[in-house]
Design a protein around this nucleic acid. Structure first.
Length: 357
DNA sequence: TAGGCCATCTGGTCCT
DNA sequence: AGGACCAGATGGCCTA
């Protein structure tokens, strides 16, 4: 999905239906996304409700920025204003060119910050996409599907660990696909080379919103999940290191069983030099890509260090995935990357489930 | 063409 | 005062 955001912003700013408060057609030279229509609230003390119902009526109140110092029009002269209750409060200030420029600058800065913020959020989402099962370059999961799949993935892994048993593939995929859309379910199935029909009949659609557990209450309302046992984790691109760090005592028994002694190796930073278990093939269907270069980062993962990446070369926070090929080249704004952003995959994802497009 | 998804702008609110 | 965060609104792109 590629398109010019600048064009969007421009067209949007000029869209007649956009939330322009006070139209200023004579000052429409701003093509950088800032709506030239808006006028600062504190400087144009308009009643918000009445403004929202005007929908462009304020074009009558154009501010003549070419020759004004008296940029404010007389409200009482407008025919529309005769039908509205007179605005209370102090009379608004004159809109001088200097005020307009200050407001524009402020809006431009705020817009840039908001863009950066959303870019950081999208980068984090993209990072999440790459660690949930079935990462695909050609078929990118939507934001909401990424979150849903991640939720299911966490739940499935937690269940696996808490039960101490290895689930069968179908149960695992069923859990992964709960509440996902049909295309995403197909993607997961294709990723695991399963026929979606083998588990779709048990997949119930999303319940009504009022019946859906909130994200906060999700752990309290677990999916019915069976763990008949068999193949051993990690599934897909799961890196168990984060689990070791979370509750090593509670999970130690299960981990020992699941990883067959890998736990003892992993808890020793110096001795850990690879994935906790060999690349797993469930029913011979999983395809793993293992990059040995990430072993070094796995070692760092358990010592709470983070690798310095060459691309940014400064603080080691510039790139999220520094080890696993092109998928690791996600520039992250340093200001937006916190520890929370450095999930287990960022500390080294040596084993990755790849969906072959 | 409708609907889903997305980026962007925007004003409000809260916090530092 | 300024920044972060949020939600509403809008329009573009894509696909079934």
């Amino acid at each position: 999905m590629t398109k010019s955001r600048g064009e969007d912003a421009l067209s949007e700013a000029e869209a007649p239906g956009s939330r322009a408060w006070i139209i200023d057609p004579l000052c429409h030279q701003d093509a950088k996304g800032l709506s030239p229509d808006a006028v600062p609230r504190e400087e144009e003390e308009e009643d918000r409700d009445s403004l929202k119902h005007q929908d462009g009526e304020d074009e009558d109140e154009d501010l003549d920025c070419e020759e004004d110092e008296e940029l404010e029009e007389d409200e009482e002269d407008s025919p529309e204003n005769e039908q509205r209750p007179r605005r209370r409060g102090p009379k608004r200030k004159k809109m001088t060119r200097a005020r307009l420029e200050r407001f524009r600058l402020r809006r431009m800065k705020a817009n840039a910050r908001e863009r950066n913020r959303m870019h950081g959020l999208n980068a984090a989402l993209d990072a999440l996409r790459r660690v949930v099962p079935c990462y695909s370059k050609s078929q990118k999961l939507s934001k909401i599907e990424t979150l849903r799949l991640a939720r299911n993935y966490i739940w499935a892994l937690s269940e696996t660990l808490s039960s101490g048993k290895s689930p069968d593939l179908v149960s695992f995929v069923q859990t992964l696909c709960r509440g996902l859309s049909q295309p995403t379910t197909n993607l997961v199935a294709g990723c695991l080379q399963l026929n979606p029909r083998t588990f779709l009949p048990e997949q119930s659609p999303d319940p009504p919103p009022h019946l859906q557990p909130s994200s906060a209450s999700f752990p309290l309302q677990p999916y019915p999940y069976q763990s008949p046992g068999l193949p051993s984790p990690p599934y897909g691109n799961a890196d168990s290191s984060h689990l070791f760090q979370l509750k090593p005592q509670a999970y130690s028994a299960a981990l020992e069983q699941l990883f067959e002694g890998a736990l003892t190796d992993c808890t020793s930073p110096s001795s850990f030099d690879g994935p906790p278990s060999p690349p797993l093939s469930i029913n011979g269907n999983f395809a793993f890509k293992h990059d040995p270069s990430t072993d070094f980062e796995k070692t760092y993962a358990f010592t709470m260090h983070y690798p310095v990446t060459s691309s940014t070369g400064t603080d080691g926070h510039g790139l999220v995935y520094s080890g696993a090929g092109p998928r690791c080249d996600i520039p992250i704004d340093n200001s937006t990357l916190t520890y929370d952003g450095q999930s287990h995959q960022e500390r080294g994802m040596g084993t990755q489930l790849i969906f072959h497009d």
